[in-house]
Design a binder for these strands. Structure first.
Lengths: 345, 345
DNA sequence: TAGAGCCTGGACAACGTTGTCAGCTGCGAG
DNA sequence: CTCGCAGCTGACAACGTTGTCCAGGCTCTA
């Protein structure tokens, strides 16, 4: 039994510390620290003895203690909506690459589109004293981050802007992309065009809907309420929405889908029908080129979104950045056939 | 304000500490600690004063210091191959869910299939004193983890076994799955079947190749060297491999692909050809059902792999687990048409 | 051979938190 | 009126590391 009164109830075997290494090598504590950190001023012979002791004991520096002392953690946090959504794969990978280039670790978590969970996660990461935070926001009020930002936590929002605070944000041109996508359908003769998107409180969903409305208006095409459906992206909801607008009193001849999850489901619905319906989707999807017809999409560059955001984060940390900025990246219309179908006569 | 927000005053992260809160509330340090941690023995009035001071100063407990003192970090690490590979999305999401259920944070990184990078990452996470590690190994020698495991870091390997050490591992039945997939092709009359897989040093690639060989052997079908190609999964390499075996002196009439990256490229290659070639792929891919013909696959349950591994990790941490074990999860053949094509006459 | 200057090594405090323990208060019982 | 008890509260050490600073030993020069 340990009688040491002040030892914390640590379930793990006690790991060797620099003190242990120093004792075994017969040197001072600070000398071990010097060797571990590659600081100059240690005789080759002393260094050898220290390294032997380190290997013999299996010592590994405790970065928690180091962080406490130094104040910087060399880690950044990434909060996204869903790790399993293919759109976020390249994005988080890009963030990781940039972090790695700056010698930082990436800690991440999913908000599952729940504002409370986003806040909980963000604050947990701040309590860990991450140096910075890349956030794909689920909520629309980020005042809870104000004390953290003031205390020096670098913060960049991606994909959607922050709510109620002035912060860096990197977005795609959701409005312009959607407008162009819908215009593409209009150019191919469609007048009755449906829009199926994500929940309206999500910024990207709202912007894309605005792009849809603008394209229709610009072309002088009237829009019916029944042609627009915003809500959760689960297949059941999307399927019902698509079927409703395809079989109402004035059925649509084309559908614009507001994100990759929606597109996938609508592709399935359309595949079951005989009468061809045109489709343009926001976000590229894998294998879209191999479907019959190929799915025309408005593609965002997810990797570039992530890279841009992460680079901006580290520039905040460098101190080379002064004012929050809003960066908008262009989208790209990739035509593959599904948008070029003429309206069924 | 925004200037303040962006001025990296990190020279000293002058965040308020419990000491500051204590001074402002006119109480002792430990009393603040009690309030923050919800420990009993604090008068409602004192607690109110402390909470007011906390809010006024924007105090947030420094978990680095807490970790140092308590010895546990309530965080686990996940090392995978590529965050952007859709196979790992559901897996890492499942790991995160389990971690969250245990009140732990997930820190992750990609090895990019580089053993050195895997080791670097794993040791960095150990230096952060993560409580446990879920590893999809890139290398085949994990003795470097021995001191860490001995020191109490829980460790579970997923998707591929650990090398040179005895550790928990959760796998799919790669051998059986591949054998069944190839047998499916044989059952539909194919004799000349190609195999395109990942680099041979990767355990899953080797096992799947073994499944292929076994299925061929069981059916008494001879195998030619030119029908087997293992290597990187980049599209160029895979495309060359596929075209070579489709146009050699004895061209294959069917291809078995060793993972989702390979399958996607081969689908593209086959789409360009007129003569139909049968295909069965390891790993399911999104929209595989909508291609013409639908792609028959051997599906693994990535989410279940992740969940099983993470749960095992926490059981190690609970101390309810004694001996390392190897858990193999079944695969499922999903027939969609591409495997049922008869060999071209 | 003495003094100056450099190199190496170690003692000590501090980072922000939690565990231990002792002191203080107010109240009821003897 | 005193003692004991219980419930609050705070002083202090410790977690493992790094930054500061000083002590000794060495070399080099005058």
């Amino acid at each position: 039994m340990t009688q040491t009164a002040h030892r914390p109830d640590n379930r793990y075997g006690n790991r060797p510390t620099m003190k242990d290494v120093a004792a075994r090598a017969g040197v001072g504590l600070k000398t071990v620290s010097r060797v571990v950190n590659g600081e100059p001023g240690v005789t080759p012979d002393t260094e050898r003895r220290v390294r032997e002791a380190i290997d013999a004991l299996g010592f590994r520096r405790n970065d928690s203690a180091r962080v406490l002392r130094k104040g910087r953690t060399a880690s950044i946090g990434l909060i996204l909506e869903d790790l399993a959504d293919p759109f976020y794969g390249p994005l988080s990978r890009a963030v990781e690459e940039v972090a790695r280039a700056h010698g930082a670790l990436l800690i991440n978590g999913s908000s599952a589109e729940d504002p409370d969970r986003e806040q909980e996660l963000a604050l947990a990461l701040c309590a860990r004293r991450v140096d910075g935070l890349v956030v794909i926001p689920a909520g629309d009020d980020h005042r809870y981050l104000e004390p953290e930002i003031k205390a020096g936590v670098a913060t960049v929002f991606v994909d959607r802007p922050a709510g109620q605070i002035d912060a860096d944000v990197v977005l795609s041109d959701n409005f312009g992309g959607a407008r162009d996508g819908v215009a593409h359908l209009i150019a191919h003769g469609h007048r009755r065009i449906g829009f199926i998107g994500d929940m309206p409180r999500i910024h990207t969903a709202a912007e894309r809907l605005r792009g849809y409305r603008t394209a229709m208006e610009d072309a002088g095409v009237p829009v019916e309420e029944a042609w627009m459906s915003l809500g959760a992206t689960d297949p059941q909801r999307v399927r019902r929405a698509a079927e409703a607008m395809l079989s109402g009193p004035s059925p649509v001849t084309a559908i614009f889908t507001g994100n990759n999850r929606v597109t996938v489901t609508v592709v399935r619905v359309l595949a079951e029908r005989t009468r061809p319906v045109a489709l343009v989707g926001f976000d590229d999807i894998e294998l879209a080129d191999l479907l019959q017809p190929g799915v025309t999409v408005v593609a965002q560059d997810a990797a570039r979104l992530g890279r841009t955001a992460a680079e901006r984060l580290f520039r905040q940390l460098d101190g080379t950045l002064l004012l929050p900025e809003r960066i908008e990246l262009p989208t790209r219309l990739i035509t593959r056939g599904s948008g070029e179908l003429p309206p069924a006569g």
